[in-house]
Design a protein around this nucleic acid. Structure first.
Lengths: 139, 139
DNA sequence: ATAGCTGCAAATGCTTTGCAAGGCC
DNA sequence: GGCCTTGCAAAGCATTTGCAGCTAT
């Protein structure tokens, strides 16, 4: 009688709903992985692997769809640091990154950890959409 | 009698030589395109197209080889802004960029145009290799 | 002579697409 | 019901690799 599986936390359902995305089984599972525990930086392949580990049935194409859907609705932020892969960051607030060249890992930096004293004015007719600071470190 | 083609400017020959790269016909031609006129930001495909336009016989594989050889010898700097392509910058001094999202173009910013007031310390055991600031603008 | 380069074609790796079947509202 | 979503396989791109033939030193 009692359902064996728990419902997703209301915040995740709410989050998808607010974003205008249908709460399908796949999206719910992926959102749970992504938003369920602190800030994360994942590649499509990593998320795919993690989903398989957690016995979530989802195709790679759907992973890509979900990552892009989430990104376009503001639930994720895409970061291109290396040409080979894209990272998706669950932290969509204004912030910067450490990039570990050896491992390919990203680490968030608080906005207070990087202070920019001056920026050039945007070229005429242009608007500054975002300022990305990546501190590349070799470990 | 008089040779129809001029010799490459000595600085380009010298540049390749100093970098420990043999001055082959292809590398000389590409270096001339790249370093012959101010700072540039090119993708492999753009350089390939430009070479063809200038009647330089070179294969795409060689373009990639040359770009990477030049980069590893410090003649170019590789920049990954979008996952689809890599840019190679002929300006290898410390500097930052405007990135025009619509056109995909890059523009150098002088070091004096972006002042960073504070940076976090590198994680222990790590060294800061480079700090990249990309100002994304929408035109 | 010989280590380094070049170019072709094939292979790779990541990402997207076409489209039929299935799921949400 | 109708539109959105999924999944598979195939296609697409940028980039790399294998390797035979060429070239600089």
């Amino acid at each position: 009688m009692m359902p064996l599986k728990r419902w997703p936390s209301p915040t995740i359902l709410q989050r998808l709903h607010d974003a205008g995305l249908r709460p399908t089984r796949q999206r719910l599972a992926l959102a749970k992985i992504l938003f369920g525990a602190g800030d994360r930086h994942v590649t499509a392949e990593e998320l795919f692997t993690e989903a398989k580990t957690k016995r979530v049935k989802v195709s790679l194409a759907t992973i890509y769809n979900a990552l892009h859907d989430f990104t376009s609705r503001g639930l994720l932020r895409e970061i291109s640091i290396e040409s080979e892969r894209s990272y998706f960051d669950t932290n969509v607030t204004d912030h910067h990154h450490f990039f570990f060249e050896r491992s390919g890992e990203l680490q968030d930096l608080g906005l207070d950890q990087v202070k920019i004293a001056s920026l050039p004015a945007a070229p005429k007719g242009a608007k500054i959409a975002r300022v990305d600071v990546v501190i590349r470190v070799t470990d």
